[in-house]
Design a protein around this nucleic acid. Structure first.
Lengths: 250, 250
DNA sequence: TGAGCAGCCTAACTTAGGTTATGAATTATG
DNA sequence: CATAATTCATAACCTAAGTTAGGCTGCTCA
């Protein structure tokens, strides 16, 4: 899993927009992998925002600690995702980030990112990556605002399923999800008890089979229909016009 | 109100990072103002994503229509904000956008944006603008997930207050907010009735005085304490390191 | 190998906020 | 100027989800 495997970069790459030098620059970002243990905190809210990471192995999440002692999770990061882009352009972290299970991340600095920005095609790719993350956040906002716990959890599981499928981590409609129900409750803004209740409902409906970290969606399409899933924000490549515009540049 | 007045661009500009040519490019975006009437739809979800707008006058919002007939508002845009950056890198709109009151917007195309991207300092500014919007969304997510209606509405009003103050639209702790309670309810994911109830509570506590569109916060600091407002995501300039990095570039 | 603990389930009870309804005040329209 | 349509306030009632609690299972590590 390299940065190039980010879906947007893939799009740029397969359309021949990235030059060999661009690719060399991208690959240069992953020269210093760091091995991280489970539950290790990558950074705390308010810390200096001086680097980003590509998650190579393991899951991570960003979150905010709330005054009442609980926390709200903003996003789960799967292998291949860029962690910390959220803080680009801020001096301090707006949210904490932590590893869920043990894994490998590749940190890179502002300096390295700016080097990429010199090449407008890479700037476009980075921005597109950031807006994709924002799009995922928007979807979550929509479900938090107006849908029931039942629909929320279904949506959440289907999103994870799609993101894992993209990186070939789904086999026979099953995947590994290293999340406790407490983490899920922090992400969906509901109580852990209600997450359990809702899982039970989905099980009884035959939509989700789960044994600890092993999750199986016997009929993913049924789940998708239930939540009217809008998958354009996950799967889409860059618009065709992009490659034209980028090639035309001097 | 010009694009330069966007907080990030202001930061770049006052630190002398923007060259005269950069500024000319930016101002070029504002050459074709369009006059928009109240409630006019700028674009629908699923439409081709081919342009962005700078809001010059009037308020706008982006939203998603939900299957049950209601809608979820993702963001309100005040004068000076860039509308549509959310869809950068997608071929189709992920959300609809509409004007609230009548106003003026300045559309610009992907081509124009890419021209800006040729200059890495501007690319950085645009990305930072996009991430700032994402940060505002994250804050809303946090409040949707874990706080009561009372705290949510207080937070919402205080955010509007800060954003308006930045563009000098607050006088004597009062400002004009052209939102119906129904729009607010669509943004905060609660029922219109409960918005009204909650406004009544805030009024009784002496925190918010409101007569139709005229809103006064007699003691903004008290409101801020109530919600423990984290204003770093609104006010902060670009990190000092940015200007160093950008100047160092060839 | 067994004590301790994290994770999960289910039940009983409570509550914040949704829903429906009615009326008053404002604003738009013919 | 009169009528219709918004917008808002408040009340009465209801439900989805929170809270507290108790018990089960399967790790971990002493």
């Amino acid at each position: 899993m390299s940065l190039i495997d980010t879906i947007v970069m893939q799009g740029l790459s397969t359309q021949g927009v990235l030059s060999p030098e661009d690719k060399a620059l991208l690959l240069g970002l992953e020269l210093s992998p760091r091995y991280i243990s489970a539950n290790e905190i990558l950074w705390d809210e308010g810390a200096e925002a001086d680097l980003f990471c590509v998650a190579k192995e393991g899951w991570a999440y960003s979150y905010r600690n709330l005054k009442n002692g609980s926390k709200q999770i903003l996003k789960f990061y799967l292998p291949g995702d860029i962690i910390g882009i959220r803080d680009f352009g801020f001096t301090r972290r707006l949210a904490s980030a932590a590893m869920i299970n043990k894994g490998v991340i590749c940190p890179f600095s502002y300096q390295q990112l700016f080097k990429l920005f010199g090449r407008s095609s890479l700037a476009a790719g980075i921005v597109a990556t950031a807006t994709r993350q924002q799009a995922q956040l928007s979807e979550r906002l929509i479900y938090l605002g107006k849908y029931s716990a039942h629909e929320q959890l279904a949506h959440f599981l289907y999103e994870i399923y799609l993101r894992l499928k993209r990186i070939n981590a789904v086999k026979d409609n099953s995947f590994l999800m290293p999340l406790t129900q407490e983490l899920i409750s922090d992400a969906l803004g509901m109580s852990p008890v209600h997450v359990s209740r809702t899982f039970s409902m989905l099980r009884e409906e035959g939509l989700v089979i789960r044994d600890r970290q092993h999750v199986k969606l016997p009929d993913p399409e049924a789940l998708a229909r239930l939540v009217e899933f809008n998958d354009s924000y996950i799967d889409e490549y860059l618009p065709p016009s992009f490659s034209e515009l980028l090639k035309a540049k001097p």
